[in-house]
Design a protein around this nucleic acid. Structure first.
Lengths: 252, 252
DNA sequence: CGCGGGCATTTACTTATGATAATGACCGAG
DNA sequence: CTCGGTCATTATCATAAGTAAATGCCCGCG
């Protein structure tokens, strides 16, 4: 159930089997959502965090003039809110992109658990800081990358994030269910220009996108074109399980 | 020394006098930097956080093609790194905009302190999440606001952030030492276009900028024009000191 | 089988923004 | 005072991106 979450964490944290069991125990029952449905229950006190179990979702804002900006894309295994969240913080405007199933993690339990185990705490920090780094890189795209570069960069990022959780086939092909209109709202472009740039990108033969399937033909080439440097994703280890032993007393 | 930091925290957290003393005690000696100088000592193990005591700084990235994007602006009282940071995280590319003095907070001591006092922990979370919210709003600007709106929005934001720390005169005028070239790198615009848009903004008579002095003539008008909604800054309380009493056992 | 809806694709046109380069204003150092 | 540096301003030209609107494609549903 929270398997994908753990799988992702293994790329940046060292958790024992015991740690993982604790995290799994925190996971509360699952809820399903239709595509385009909003995740949040408006005004709910929100004593829990949202974990994407399956499907894609996003965090967005709508400005007064009606323009929409997607701030963040959430894949399976992603937490939609910071684990140290304060009660009133972060108005939720999270919407499902595909049909989605979510799980919920009780926030107070979560923090108690983090205090009790330095390893878990560190894993949660790694996850949080990584997701901030992703948003930051997104900001850089919007500020200083061209339309084509933005698209390419996104596809390179998704490639790694999906690979982390085993959703890439043959190391180069994955499902990309985001609509061109949504790509526009994500990358700060108009629908039409997304279409144009997508074609330009296909014309380079570095990648292709047909139906909902994205295939990378030349990873290095695509990364160069997109000014992509993977270091911001903070993948430190291969996804190996750590040998369980006693935890050290202090967070590193 | 850390007074500005505390002053800012009072807008979102409830600290006792005792709490504040503890935070002050954490603050390590101060260092000075010339304008344009980089803050970070490359490769240093970084066992501490950087606190801006005086002056303005920024966090930036330079892409392979030479383009530069400023990700975040740091004012007095701002922490340049998340308090729960992992050792290697967050490559530092922080530069002084004006002459700057910084202080350093020992990272391990910081976390121990947070664990010991729920109020301090909550204050630090408030600060961290607020600075993320600011970056997120910045992202929205880059994606969906026009050049003029971006500039206006920035000036509205600075107005509040500076007011929090008492750096606004008569509630409408403050020092704005950021160069037009830097504004471009911050807002994803070219130098020339910043200049153009600045004039357009002045022409509205909603605000003016001469020398390094920014004056807002019509706050409501400027906010409307910029699609500015202050709620993301999470100012909850007037800057009143909380009456000191025993802390509650659990973080809220 | 045919209709409607969601999504992708084009076309034609407008506009915001970028690139280059020259000029002016200001200011501190010698 | 004057030279050089930094920053602001202007002008000209080039282009990326937006807007509007029509068309095509696919697919599920009745």
């Amino acid at each position: 159930m929270a398997q994908t979450f753990l799988r992702k964490l293994r790329h940046g944290a060292h958790l024992t089997q015991e740690n993982e069991n604790v995290l799994i125990a925190l996971t509360r029952p699952v809820r399903s959502l239709a595509a385009r449905e909003d995740v949040s229950i408006e005004g709910e006190p929100r004593g829990h965090l949202t974990l994407i179990v399956e499907g894609w979702a996003c965090h967005y804002t709508t400005l007064e003039n009606g323009k929409r900006q997607i701030v963040s894309l959430y894949l399976p295994g992603d937490l939609c809110e910071p684990f140290g969240i304060l009660p009133r913080f972060m108005t939720n405007a999270i919407a499902a992109i595909t049909p989605v199933t979510i799980a919920q993690l009780r926030h107070d339990t979560m923090r108690r658990t983090a205090q009790a185990s330095p390893r878990i705490e560190e894993a949660l920090w790694w996850d949080l800081l990584t997701s901030f780094a992703i948003e930051r890189e997104h900001l850089i795209s919007l500020g200083r990358r061209t339309a084509t570069e933005r698209l390419g960069h996104l596809f390179c990022e998704l490639h790694l994030r999906l690979e982390n959780i085993g959703l890439v086939d043959d190391e180069l092909s994955y499902d990309m269910p985001v609509t061109q209109a949504d790509l526009g709202d994500l990358l700060g472009l108009s629908l039409v220009h997304v279409n144009r740039s997508l074609q330009e990108l296909r014309a380079t033969r570095l990648m292709s996108l047909r139906g909902r399937r994205l295939t990378i033909h030349n990873l290095r080439g695509l990364r160069e074109l997109s000014l992509f440097d993977e270091s911001y994703l903070q993948r430190v280890t291969s996804p190996s399980r750590h040998q369980p032993h006693a935890e050290i007393g202090e967070p590193a």
